[in-house]
Design a protein around this nucleic acid. Structure first.
Length: 423
RNA sequence: GGAGACGUCGCAUAGUGGCCUAGUGCGCGGCCCUGCUAAGGCCGUGAGGGUGCAAGCCCUCCGUGGGUUCAAAUCCCACCGUCUCCGCCA
């Protein structure tokens, strides 16, 4: 939820943000008009209510001969107050509808434009030259078959397209990635968390996932619960409606969870293997920080992501995602993309967003300030997911179909130095 | 799933239609008293919103949502949550 006071004071920034996202800048003016209407109807209603309350209180004390008359007047007024209240509620609902369509104000340094307008911030490591090594790299699906690590056929048999079994070393590799991520988080001072993966509508809406991308989310209508696409959702809801203490620095949580995504808009995209699936596991960093600390915290989250990527030793680059490709809640987002030899392209492995006060405002997460409370900033970032298996297998494969285990992961695999083809 | 009890300000509790504009205690903060780790006094102390240059004034919130009434923490209905017991499952 955007800050209406800020919008009133500085509509131009909001218009510019809308334009950068490729959204409608005139929404700003419609919101301002609706806001003014809401405040006018509210003031009128509250004034009437105050008069009515005073009149009601006087009934008990009124002299007997006047009582009937005062009562009649109060009855009539009750009706008027009811109408005024309904008008105020309608105005508030109209405003809410407009505000719901408003994404967070984008950070001024974010490149404008859509998916292809990202800015590359840095590149790390060098993709291997397989031609020079004398063989054509296999893709992760084929390696998964050879190693007995990934079974997409049986995943489809049991649950449908985009489901899979991780088997043998595949399962072990996922656990290794997630455990390494948890250790990294622990070392960085995060509180490890295992979260609910079913959440109620309030938290789902509060984190901004029921807006444009509602079709991405699994919903269980019988119980009105949503399956989360990331533990960002329960972790953002964790402190909902609370006043938290950030005087000792940001509150940092590392959530381990299954993640569920409908992938409704991606038919035919990444259908092979486990790049884009309905269910996977993830360790997610989540931080509550002071507004003025948010940008520095964002850089720290990115730093920890990079440390994890160094651990698995794959070539990657960092991009500053363009405004039009940001989620509604994000003011800025950095993705780390690993090189995918089989497709000669970059694949997103981590994503860290600075949501400034957008989520916290709607979820009611505040801290005490000099005078009263104020919303905090929330940030999130990936520390490890099932998808990393793809990058690890492809980048560390050998000509014979075996895969060298990156040094950093060996302690999590009982010292195993390579995955070897199964008979 | 069934039965019962409960849900009030950070915590504890009072409040069963108008004197609740929610009292009290604890905690917390400030000031005062007291020459020392004791004890006491006074004042203040929730959230959200509207309005105003400001001081202030006003509205809302007693688990949530409806309803009755001129008037609801209080009466009615539904739901949610917590606890206890029973059943079922592991």
């Amino acid at each position: 939820m955007i800050d209406l006071k800020q919008l009133r004071e500085d509509p131009q920034t909001a218009r510019a943000s809308q334009e950068a996202r490729g959204a409608d800048p005139s929404l700003v003016d419609r919101v301002l008009a609706a806001d003014e209407h809401r405040r006018a109807t509210l003031t009128s209603f509250e004034t009437m209510r105050a008069e009515h309350k005073a009149l009601s209180r006087s009934i008990g004390k009124a002299p007997a001969e006047e009582r009937a008359q005062v009562l009649a007047r109060a009855k009539q007024m009750a009706e008027e107050v009811k109408n005024a209240e309904a008008a105020a509620e309608r105005a508030a609902a109209e405003l809410d509808d407009l505000v719901a369509g408003f994404g967070n104000l984008v950070h001024p340094d974010v490149p404008a434009g859509g998916e292809d307008d990202y800015r590359v911030l840095s590149t790390h490591g060098t993709p291997r030259d397989f031609e020079d090594e004398g063989f054509t790299p296999r893709d992760h699906k084929e390696l998964g078959d050879i190693l007995g690590a990934i079974d997409t056929e049986r995943g489809a048999k049991v649950s449908g397209a985009r489901f899979y079994f991780l088997t043998g070393v595949g399962a072990r590799l996922e656990l290794a990635i997630l455990n390494a991520a948890m250790d990294k988080a622990l070392a960085a001072g995060f509180t490890p968390m295992i979260t609910p993966t079913l959440v109620g509508p309030k938290v789902m809406a509060g984190t901004g996932f029921l807006g444009e991308h509602a079709a991405e989310v699994y919903h269980l209508p019988t119980d009105d619960l949503y399956l989360v696409g990331t533990s960002e959702v329960p972790l953002a809801g964790y402190h909902a409606d609370e006043i938290i203490d950030l005087s000792q620095g940001p509150k940092r949580y590392a959530g381990w969870s299954a993640c569920y995504r409908r992938e409704a808009g991606s038919h035919g995209k990444d259908t092979r293997g486990i790049i884009r699936v309905h269910q996977f596991h993830k360790v997610e960093m989540f931080a509550y920080a002071r507004q003025e600390d948010a940008e520095a915290e964002h850089a720290r989250l990115l730093g920890w992501e990079q440390e994890m990527l160094d651990l698995i030793d794959v070539p990657y680059r960092v991009i500053d995602v363009a405004a039009g490709d940001l989620g509604a809640s994000a003011a800025r987002k950095f993705d780390c993309e690993a090189w995918l030899p089989s497709q000669q392209r970059w694949l997103e492995l981590t994503s860290t967003s600075n949501c400034t006060t957008f989520q916290a405002r709607r979820l009611g997460v505040r801290e005490r300030g000099a005078d009263g409370t104020r919303p905090v900033a929330t940030l999130n970032g990936t520390l490890g997911t099932t998808r990393w298996i793809v990058a690890i297998l492809e980048n560390h494969q050998q000509a014979d179909g075996s895969v060298t285990v990156p040094e950093g992961l060996r302690p999590y695999l009982g010292g195993l130095d390579a995955f070897r083809p199964v008979a």
